[in-house]
């Protein structure tokens, strides 16, 4: 899966001893990992494992109780603005203003990220995602699959070096989900961006991820290439591994 083994020497995200405690509950418990340039890192685990909290801390939406987050070698808390210019995020659980058209919404975000020649960039991405015809439609009139793709376009507007994706294909039909995965892999290959990916679709995780991190009860219980994790848990597939962990087998 990893095309260039050398990229593993170049961490773009460094997490060390990251912990988040909510009202005495350890949502994330002393996790440490690195993410490398051009890598797709899958973050998986059962509900409540700490995936979303980890993602929120990486996006500076939630402050850690303890531990360090370094992105591009910079401390996230002290360099929030600088770092967030170079990253982006998309989630199937986040929407956009419904009464604005697709173009209006994307132009707002293009201005927010100070994109040069925003119209051309937006049209190019709409073409890539095969939804050029909806640019003048209001978000209200779109299907959930189309909204997801518009959110993905928003996440690619600033040509991020790191993309955080929270279940990006959750509301897409198999055909569009497959096209989206191909497109993300193409973008990753062409631009060498790093992607942190969460999904409950184990087949997708296996297909997409160069490495995966398995979280359970806030802790990392496995980390490595999908085949290494499968071997560690003696599972035939990641789904098999997931079920074993979720059912504590």
């Amino acid at each position: 899966m990893i095309e260039d083994v050398n990229m593993l020497t170049n961490p773009i995200v460094e997490i060390s001893g990251l912990t988040k405690i909510f009202n005495g509950l350890r949502a994330v418990d002393n996790i440490s990992f690195e993410m490398y340039v051009g890598e797709i890192l899958g973050l998986l685990g059962p509900n409540g494992a700490g995936k979303t909290t980890t993602l929120q801390m990486l996006l500076a939406l939630t402050t850690p109780t303890s531990g360090d987050i370094k992105i591009f070698g910079l401390d996230l808390e002290r360099n929030r603005e600088k770092i967030l210019k170079e990253v982006n995020f998309s989630s199937s659980y986040v929407a956009m203003p419904y009464s604005l058209t697709v173009m209006e919404n994307l132009m707002v975000f293009a201005r927010l990220y100070n994109i040069k020649n925003p119209q051309a960039r937006i049209v190019g991405l709409l073409k890539d995602f095969e939804i050029e015809e909806i640019k003048d439609k209001t978000v209200r009139s779109l299907s959930s699959g189309q909204i997801t793709r518009v959110c993905l376009i928003k996440a690619l507007l600033n040509e991020p070096k790191i993309l955080f994706l929270d279940e990006p294909t959750a509301s897409l039909d198999p055909d569009i989900a497959d096209k989206t995965r191909r497109l993300l892999k193409k973008i990753k290959k062409e631009r060498g961006i790093s992607i942190l990916y969460t999904s409950h679709n184990m087949r997708e995780m296996e297909e997409m991820s160069d490495r995966i991190i398995f979280l359970d009860k806030g802790r990392i219980i496995a980390m490595g290439r999908p085949e290494e994790v499968r071997a560690q848990f003696k599972g035939e597939s990641l789904e098999d591994v997931f079920l074993k962990i979720a059912r504590q087998l």
Partner: peptide
């Protein structure tokens, strides 16, 4: 509009 996350993951202060 569930848009606050989109705004606050941007570099806006």
């Amino acid at each position: 509009a569930r848009n606050l996350l989109n705004i606050f993951v941007s570099p806006i202060r």
